[in-house]
Design a protein around this nucleic acid. Structure first.
Lengths: 126, 126
DNA sequence: CAGATTGTTCTACTAAACTAAGACAATAGA
DNA sequence: TCTATTGTCTTAGTTTAGTAGAACAATCTG
């Protein structure tokens, strides 16, 4: 079961935060085809956002072909973005964890780490 | 000189995108204390956003103590967030670049990589 | 079938983000 | 001093995000 966490005041619209969390859970294999997402009312109760906001997030995921809403029964995972299998992540995750440890002991904060990754992914200094 | 790039339709408010880009440039050492940010009118011309939006971004940076606005002269970097020196990044950047190469050859997309990093930074599976 | 659960729709409203265009004020440089 | 540049403010408007509460429709369960 996925637990949503909406950070009001982060500036990012709530429906985008929800969508991103689902996509991320899909990529990491926490959610797999066939799994059921929390009901709209569950999310409302646990995160405090409005039902229409949750619905908007789910509708965008459905439009992207990632989930399927079945009235009366729930919203279910239909497919997963990304082609890599989550099992392939394990060795990479271990290496990355080591690197993070090293970076942190060098004094880097999380924001530094994100900035560095974004720099590397976008192809170095630009 | 920093070049701003505002992505309309990403959902993230323009003023937040601008602020994030400045903060990131500061962390990576692309901007250092004393440097001048692009003028409000420059940003308006290059990014297409409204002057008030740019002003809002700059004002938040000033409120955070990162920059200083001097009327008639420009907006200047005052301090840098983060404690690590940008030179300390170099060896870490190299290691990270290697890891990214490996991850990509394993079939991971950029979104997979971001998700994996966020997972590791937040302390493993949650 | 009956009742609960689920997604869905509707209307009305508030607040925030953003645009538009103009004017003002302090500074730097010729 | 004069002029261009720069940050700043004002007013007015549009669009989007989000809230609120109620109702409807399909599905599952007993």
């Amino acid at each position: 079961m996925v637990e949503f966490h909406v950070d009001r005041g982060s500036g990012l619209p709530a429906y985008l935060q929800l969508g991103r969390q689902v996509r991320e859970a899909l990529r990491l294999g926490w959610l797999q085809p066939g799994d059921r997402l929390p009901t709209v009312r569950d999310v409302v109760a646990s995160s405090g956002v409005n039902a229409n906001t949750v619905l908007k997030a789910y509708r965008e995921l459905e439009l992207a072909g990632l989930v399927e809403a079945r009235q009366g029964s729930g919203t279910f995972v239909k497919a997963s973005p990304g082609s890599a299998a989550p099992e392939d992540f394990d060795p990479l995750r271990a290496t990355l964890a080591d690197w993070v440890t090293e970076a942190r002991s060098a004094g880097l904060e999380d924001e530094d780490i994100y900035a560095l990754l974004r720099e590397v992914l976008s192809g170095g200094a630009q």
